[in-house]
Design a protein around this nucleic acid. Sequence first.
RNA 1: CGGGACGUGGCGCAGCUUGGUAGCGCGGUUGCUUUGGGAGCAAUAGGUCGCAGGUUCAAAUCCUGUCGUCCCGACCA
Length: 575
Amino acid sequence: MRWSQLFIPTLKEDPAAAETASHKLLMRAGYIRPLGSGIYSLLPLAQKVRLKVINIIREEMNAIGGQEFVLPALHPTELWEESGRLGTMGDIMFRLKDRKGAELVLGVTHEEIFTSIARNALSSYRQVPQIWYQFQTKFRDELRPKSGLLRVREFTMKDSYSFDVDAEGLDKSFDLHKAAYERIFTRAGLDFVAVEASSGAMGGSASTEFMVLTDAGEDLVVLCRGCGYAANVEKAVAAFETIESKNAHASLEKFPTPGLKTVEQLANFADFAATKNQIKTLVYAADDELVLVLLRGDHELNTTKLTDFLGAENVRAAEDQEIFSAMGAHAGSLGGVGVKTSNGGKIKKVFLDNALKGRSNMVTGANDDDFHYKGVSIERDIEASAWGDFRGVKTGDMCIKCGGALAVEKSLEIGHIFKLGTRYSTTMNAHVLIASGEKTPIMMGSYGIGVERLMAAAVERSHDKKGIIWPKSLAPYDVIVNVINSAEEEALAAGEKLYAELRAAGIEVLLDDRAERPGFKFADNDLIGIPLRVNIGKKLKDGIVELVERATGENKDVPIHNLVDVFKQNVTGAL
RNA sequence: CGGGACGUGGCGCAGCUUGGUAGCGCGGUUGCUUUGGGAGCAAUAGGUCGCAGGUUCAAAUCCUGUCGUCCCGACCA
C-alpha cells in the first residue's frame, strides 16, 4: 500500500481524553477513533492488526481441534432466563425489544447459545469431545468504560467452549486450551503470566487468567519469584506467621476507648493493642443478609474471596444504620464477642479469617460505642459460623508454597479459561448418554480472549516516546519503504521498484511516497510502529539504502540489490 | 451510582471572575521558497461557543435544567 493513499490520520498532539499509553498512541497513530463512551471505530491499520491477532488465534484453535462457528450476537431473553444468568448478568447486558414487543439481549458471552446447540445435537458420549469457537462481537454495558480499547462496551472476543462426557475429558480440553493460549500470547509477542483466578459470575470450579503486567491494568496479581506461584489477589493465599499469644489465658475485660475508631488509633493508644493483636470486625450484606467478617487488625478483606466463599450473588459493605441496628454500636467499636447468630439475631453468620486461628488475649470492639474488650480468646469468646481465607494478600507476604516474599502487581487480563463443569448443562438440560445407557450432564469449559484488548496490551508493553513498537507478528506492515525525497524521480522509482520486489517476495510493505519533509515522515513512521524501515535517500546514488530497526533505532547501510534477500532472512524468518 | 473535571472551527487550548467586536497554536487550501528528524513567508476558508429554557437593551460569559465526555471510587468473565 502507498501511504499517500492509505487512511492514516495521525495526530501531532495527545488527545485530551486519553490517559493510558495505548489509548493515546492508538489515537495519535491513526488506528482508532471514538464514537461514544467505550465505543471505538477501528481504522484500516487497526483492522490489519486485528486480523493478525485473529489469524494467530485461529491457527492455534484449529491446531487443538477447534471448529469455527459464528453465532448470533442478538439473543432471545428466554435463553438467559433459562440459565439463570439474567439475574447475575442483568445489569451488564444491553436489552431491547423488537417491534412485536419480544425481549432480546445483546450477547455478553455465548455459553447459553452454544449450550442450546449442544443439547439438541449432542446425544451420545461417542460425539464428544468437541471444541467449538468463534470470533464474535460482545456487548457489555460496563459500569465504567475506560482507557481506550482496554475496557469498552463493544469488542471482539474469541470464545470457545468444550464439551466432554466427564471430568477427565474436561481436564484434557482445559489443558489443551491452556497450552494453545500460551502459544497464542507468545506468538503475539506478549510477556504474560498465567494465574489462578476466581470464576466469578461464570460459575464453575477452576479458572486460569492470562495476565499482562502493566499499570494500565485493573487487576492485581500475586507473584512469587522464588517458586513461580501466581494468582489473582481474588484467589491468592499467603502464609502467615504463627503468633504465640502472651498471657494466653487472660480473661475478658471491657475498657474505655473514647474516640478511638480505627485500628491504628487503638494501636497507638495501648501497647497490648498492636495491630496484630486486634480483631478487625466488618459487617457485610450478602444478598441482603448481614454477616460479620473478622480479620486480624493488620489484614484487609478481599470482597471477592468473601463472595466466592458464600456463593452469594451480591456482597456489599453494610450501611451505617444497618450496622447500628444489628450491633448496637457504630463502626469503630464493633466486635464478635457475644454475637449470637441463632434465635433471630440480625447477624446471620460470623466468619473468621484463618489467620485468627488459635489466637488469644486479643483486642476488639465491645459493641458499645467507645468501649473495647481485651483478653479476647477467639475460640472461647466468639461463636464462629465458619472459618475461611478472606484476607487480601499484600506485597511482602510469605508464599504458601516456598515461603518466599510475594509481590503484588497490577495487570491486565487478556485471556481467561474456565472449567464450567455442569453449571450450564444442568440448568439448560444438555445431556449425553454414556455407555451404560444413563444420561449424564455434559462437562463444559469456556475460554475467552479479548482481541482488541490484546492489541492494546501489546502497545502498553511496547512503545517509546516516539510511538508504538509492534511485535513483528502483529504489525500492520512488515516494513516501511520511505522515499525521503519523493520529488526526486530516481529515488521514487527506486522505491517503487523495491516496493514491488518486496511484495513479490511475500513481504507486507508500506511505501511512504508522500511529498512531505523528511522529519515529518520519520516522525509519522516511528509513530505507527512498523518494525523495520528502509530509507531511500542520499546514498542511493551509490546503490545504498538504510535499514532501520524501529525498536532499537539501529541502522545499517545495505546495497539496494541485496535488500530482498536480507528481508527474506530478517522478516519472513522471524514470522 | 457517589466524588471530581471538562464541553468554544478537524485537533490542542485561551476568553467566562468583571455580560457588549469570538481569539491563539497545530491542521486544511493556494502561491513562492525549503527538503535527512513534526519547515518559512504570504494569502485564504472554516465556529448555531453541547442542547434547552431563563435573566438582561445585550449572554461563550450570569441562573436553571438537560445531554455528552474523561478521571477517581463503587462495580465488573
